[in-house]
Every structure is written in C-alpha cells, then in structure tokens.
C-alpha cells in the first residue's frame, strides 16, 4: 500500500520556452511532409517525396499508395 502511494515523487516544473514549441511544430510539419503528404498541400512535388520515402512510409506504418 505504501509502495503504491509513493508512485508520484514531486519534482520542480521545467519552463519550456515558446521557441521550443515552435521548433516542435516545424519538426512535426517536416515529418508530415516526409511521411504523410499525398497532394493535400503540395501540387506536384508530393510525388517526389512519396516515392523517395516510399519504403520508410511502409515500414513506419503510415498509409502509402
């Protein structure tokens, strides 16, 4: 019972700068282009991305052709 009660040990919160969240957004947008883009945002160059990262898309379990 004591062991369960002690699962949460308080630690001081870490301040995450706004810039870090912006970098996270940029990173996720890049991953979207790499793994998900199939013509929703890019008119023509999506095919190049799709074909180049074709194996990665299949292996990482995201929808591919």
């Amino acid at each position: 019972m004591v062991a369960v009660a002690q699962t949460h040990v308080p630690v001081a919160p870490v301040r995450v700068p706004l810039l870090a969240w912006m970098a996270v957004m940029v990173g996720l947008a890049a991953v979207y282009l790499m793994l998900q883009e199939n013509g929703a945002l890019l008119a023509t160059s999506w095919e190049t991305l799709h074909e180049l990262f074709h194996d990665g898309r299949h292996a990482l379990g995201v929808p591919c052709h």
Partner: peptide, 14 residues
C-alpha cells in the same frame, strides 16, 4: 536502391 536509402534516411530523421 534510392528508395531503400530514402527509407533509411526517413528512419533517422523520424
């Protein structure tokens, strides 16, 4: 082979 390279690159970037 370029697609295999793309898959390897995708893994590291991801």
């Amino acid at each position: 082979s370029e697609q295999v390279g793309g898959g390897v690159a995708a893994s590291v970037i991801y």
